Simulated assay, not measured.
Amino acid sequence: MNLLAWLRPHAPELGANLRQRMAALPAPAPLGVCSLREQRWVVLDLETSGLNLNRDQVLSIGAVAIEDGAINLGQPFERTLHRPEQKTNASVLIHGLGPSALAAGCDPAEALLDLMAFIGDSPVLAFHAPFDQRMLSRALKDSLGLRLQHDFIDVAELAPLLNPDTVLREAGLDDWIARFGLQVQARHHAVADAQVTAELALILFSQARRQQLDSPLQLAQRLKQWRRRKAQGHGL
């Protein structure tokens, strides 16, 4: 074996059924100029073994779809992944996923492929999206050898962009939930967090339309400009 082959990441061995399902996945659609209401969105939340992007693992996945300007409550996506090797740590106190739940979980490759089929060609929304994007990207590569190419929009950035006069001490998800008086069934439960993030996103989309931002592409472009101004303000 030459050095390049040794350094190249080992591709996971997949059965024929998984390979066929992967081949059938649609390519992600670019952000377009359709209205925010017309766009189908998938709101994602991951529970992980910790916050280390290089070491920690995805333990459970929750997602809901926003279709025709409303949350599709009848078809949420939820999977706990089979992680029997995961040791109990402080994160269990937050998300409650102990050894028995992880031992009974779904095969990671199957669960992740189910998620990508649920996402389809839609853009993804998440609160602190870069973290979810990086964790999901690594999980897909490790379990399926699949490259994540979907557009992600960060609700944690969208909220202050559209509410410049709102000053929050932490500006976390709980703070924005309280700011808009939303009700949440259970925090740090993937589906519940995805659902309340979707409710927050719908409020923000309504604000965006009032500010003449009514397409996914416009939102992404405005966020890019906002991010650049913020970096310049911090001298970066």
Rank of each mutant, 00 (worst) to 15 (best):
E78R: 13
A117Q: 15
R40T: 13
G96D: 03
D121P: 13
P108D: 10
G145L: 08
I61D: 03
L125Q: 02
R187F: 01
G69H: 10
A198Y: 01
R210T: 07
I203D: 00
V43T: 09
F127T: 06
I66Q: 06
F180G: 07
L125F: 11
D45F: 00
G235F: 00
R169Y: 00
M135A: 13
G181K: 11
L223Q: 14
G15S: 10
L36H: 02
L18K: 12
L162S: 06
D45Q: 01
L219D: 06
R169H: 07
K230W: 10
L25N: 02
S143Q: 15
L81V: 06
L125A: 00
A23Y: 01
V155F: 00
T88F: 04
T197F: 01
I66W: 05
G105K: 05
L102F: 03
R147C: 09
L213P: 02
T166V: 15
S100F: 04
Q195A: 00
H189E: 09
M22H: 09
P28E: 10
T80R: 14
H188M: 08
L136H: 04
T80F: 12
I66F: 06
Q232Y: 08
Q133D: 10
L204Y: 07
A208M: 03
L200W: 00
Q183Y: 09
A231R: 15
D175E: 15
H82G: 00
A103L: 06
A63D: 05
R222N: 13
E157K: 13
G235E: 05
R79W: 09
A90D: 15
P26Q: 11
R229M: 12
S206I: 04
Q20F: 03
H234D: 08
S60E: 02
M135E: 07
E67Y: 05
R21H: 05
L4R: 09
L25I: 08
L25T: 04
